[in-house]
Amino acid sequence: MEPAHGASSDNELLERARQGDAEAFGAIYDRYCNVLYGTAMRLVRSPEQAEDVVQEAFMKLHSRPPAPPVRNLGGWLHRVASHAALDRLRRRGRRQEHELIPERAGSRSTEPAAGTDLERALGALPERGRRVFLLHDVEGFLHSEIADMLGISAGTSKSQLFRARRILRQELAGAKS
């Protein structure tokens, strides 16, 4: 999530955005929108709700930005979006526990076969294992962070990941054969 050489740093853009520079805020959006949308989409599995999550994350950045200097703005936004997505899942309940992630416009994969197989395989997981796998192996959070997000212990997160990976390996091996 590092800016390109010569581009303004996150802190520079954030300071300009704080002063009301809409272009700077737009540049921050452009830098992180795909990551946040992807995170939201993988967790909430609804394009409409994923858009709401992204909007919520940027609204929070606008209304309550992190104190400067920001060490990792992308990480901050990523955590905010993940929390927002998980909050939505909690409010939504477990109604969509066993739904597969549908193919949607705006969620294109550069390796459609592999991503699609993984999405299908995730359907075989119980919801908690699915969330732990997504948060750890796809989104890159640590077990300690996942424990805070999901209200579980780090040990439970690790054991959930262990089981989730085992099921996914079996599912993916079955998909190939």
Binding site: A105, T110, A114, G115, L118
Partner: peptide, 16 residues
């Protein structure tokens, strides 16, 4: 595969 999936998602244009 997980990493590839993470890198591949593009936000819809109207969201901006």
């Amino acid at each position: 595969i997980a990493e590839s999936w993470r890198e591949s998602t593009v936000a819809p244009q109207h969201l901006r």
